[in-house]
Design a protein around this nucleic acid. Structure first.
Length: 500
RNA sequence: GGUCCUGUGGCCGAGUGGCUAGGCAGAGCUCUGCAAAAGCUCGUACAGCGGUUCGAAUCCGCUCGGGACCUCCA
């Protein structure tokens, strides 16, 4: 197996991936908070990790992929008068908090399915792991890195930092962080300005609360990921992932919690995906510039000129490396749409050539073409092994497209390559497109009946052309085109059609 | 203010110290009754200024521009 290199945010360099247990990968990815619809930026992260998950499987690893659902009430701000997100939204919509959770969890799953993301192998919820979180808080208290104030438990960042660097993930010193912290309004029961809550005391009217050794309350912002990753992957596992925005606080605190509790950094490799931007600014819930997947698929967003299919968006994302920002625009999306279409046509051409390829011999009649094809195909794995460089794989695929199309169109004889090369080409083209990149062809509804109707029209047109009645033949083609159906006269005299 | 990232041809975007990614758009040609599709050919880009080097878009420094994080957010 070739070496896979992954950029590790912890060490700021690419490292060869070595699993803790040979043949197995444990991966934890921070999932969504289900109090509103996921926007496209969220989707980008989950699509990126879906590709990573799929690639590990392709490499033959058995992967345990854990992605949580955050459904426990977290404070809005760093003050105890803050409402929790779920009860706030619940009052707004006159629903129980768990109804909100259910609604948006289902919505999230639906979106993931539309993007053809594979489900994680375990999808734990924070509310389902309250006791695990309480246990972990107890441990941290016992180890002396936390303190309780009137039913709320805080993590003692300054004490922790004396023994282990707190800002290790984002390369920051405690003094710098302290300077950057804003002065908080209201009375502050925390000892240190950077201290964060592990457990929060709930007011009586608070809708989501659970009993604990410190009274009724709910878990803090970061403890759920620590508790659930520890439970399902062990206190030390291979990969922890999430969006870059989580590194500075959420992941920094996760590391501190695990170190304080188990004396380990939970993950060997930290992978952070970059942000999706709109007009150069980050897409986010609070900025209000978020695109909802639904708005994209229907084209109902004011900034969109038309609707884009889920697979177009997925492909669009694959054209950029996961650690680069990606800017969202109509032009870029339209380019992606056309590019993907071209890829699918080459893919179909390859399938059609299969019959002909049966007769290929073991020797290629043009070793140069054969060699080039092999080099491009072998480049797929090489590029993926270099920190999952999907953009480079696609570039190689596009290099192969004119070659494949020329086999089909007859510009290049198929026997320029040998049988083994053809088989490899077809196998890898298909594997990458569908299994690793997770792309699928958009279905045309009721194509069976439509096809027989079209075959009739194609036949009539053919007869018209035979007697040089081009007025009739062009009328058929033009009228169909107006209805969104494109006829193509192939080289061999046959006629094919597709939906524009 | 602090910590980082980034600036590539009309647009989107890979990228290794030397062998000019790729996509979209555009131009010409071939094929075609005409189209469409497909194929072929074409643009020699790397913010600016210095430096290191035989050689830099790629390394270093400075300047200018853009962005992220430091506050819930993938």
């Amino acid at each position: 197996m070739a070496e896979l290199k992954i950029y590790n945010s912890l060490t700021k360099q690419k490292e060869v991936f070595t699993p803790i247990t040979p043949g197995y990968v444990g991966m934890y990815v921070c999932g969504p908070t289900v109090y509103s619809d996921v926007h496209l930026g969220n989707c980008r992260t989950f699509i990126s990790f879906d590709i990573i998950y799929r690639y590990f499987k392709y490499l033959g690893y058995k992967v345990r992929y854990v992605r949580n659902i955050t459904d426990a009430g977290h404070l809005e701000g760093d003050r105890d008068e803050g409402d929790d997100k779920f009860s706030k939204k619940a009052r707004l919509e006159q629903l129980e908090p768990m109804e909100i959770v259910q609604k948006y969890t289902l919505g999230f799953h639906k979106v993931m399915e539309l993007f053809n993301n594979l489900p994680p192998t375990i999808e734990p919820t924070a509310t389902g792991h309250i006791s695990e979180q309480i246990e972990m808080v107890k441990h941290i208290l016992q180890n002396g890195y936390a303190y309780e104030v009137d039913g709320t438990v805080y993590f003692d960042v300054e004490k922790y930092d004396k023994e282990k660097p707190y800002g290790i993930l984002t390369n920051r010193k405690l003094e710098e962080l302290l300077e950057g912290t804003r002065t908080l309004s209201g009375q502050d029961e925390k000892k240190g300005r950077l201290d964060f809550a592990l457990w929060v005391k709930a007011k009586p009217e608070h809708l989501m609360q659970w009993p604990s050794p410190w009274g009724m309350g709910f878990p803090g912002w970061h403890i759920e990921c620590s508790a659930m990753s520890g439970k399902y992957l062990g206190t030390k596992f291979d990969i922890h992932g999430g969006g870059m925005d989580l590194a500075a606080t959420h992941h920094t605190n996760e590391i501190a919690q695990s170190e304080a509790c188990y004396n380990v950094n939970p993950a060997n490799y930290w992978i952070h995906t970059n942000m999706l931007t709109v007009n150069g600014a980050r897409m986010s819930k609070t900025a209000g510039n978020g695109f909802l997947p639904g708005e994209l698929f229907t084209g109902s967003h004011p900034l969109l000129e038309k609707a884009y299919a889920p697979m177009t968006v997925r492909f669009f994302m694959l054209q950029t490396h996961y650690r680069s920002t990606l800017d969202f625009s109509n032009e870029a999306l339209q380019a992606a749409e056309k590019g993907l279409k071209r890829l699918w046509e080459a893919y179909q051409n390859l399938e059609q050539l299969q019959q002909q390829a049966q007769e290929l011999s073991d020797t290629a009649s043009d070793t140069e073409t054969d060699r080039r094809c092999r080099a491009f195909i072998e480049g797929f794995d090489t590029s993926m092994n270099d920190d999952f460089n999907t953009a480079k794989v696609l570039a190689n695929m596009f290099e192969l497209v004119p070659i494949i199309n020329s086999f089909k169109g007859g510009q290049i004889p198929l026997n320029y390559i040998n049988r083994a090369t053809f088989d490899l080409l077809q196998k890898q083209f298909s594997t990458y497109l569908t299994d690793i990149f997770g792309l699928k062809e958009e279905k045309v509804a009721d194509s069976g009946r439509l096809d027989s109707v079209l075959q009739l029209l194609i036949q009539i047109r053919k007869e018209a052309r035979a007697r040089k009645d081009f007025a009739t033949s062009d009328k058929i083609r033009n009228e169909l085109q107006r209805e969104g159906i494109l006829l193509k006269d192939e080289k061999d005299g046959s006629v094919s059609w597709n939906i524009i």
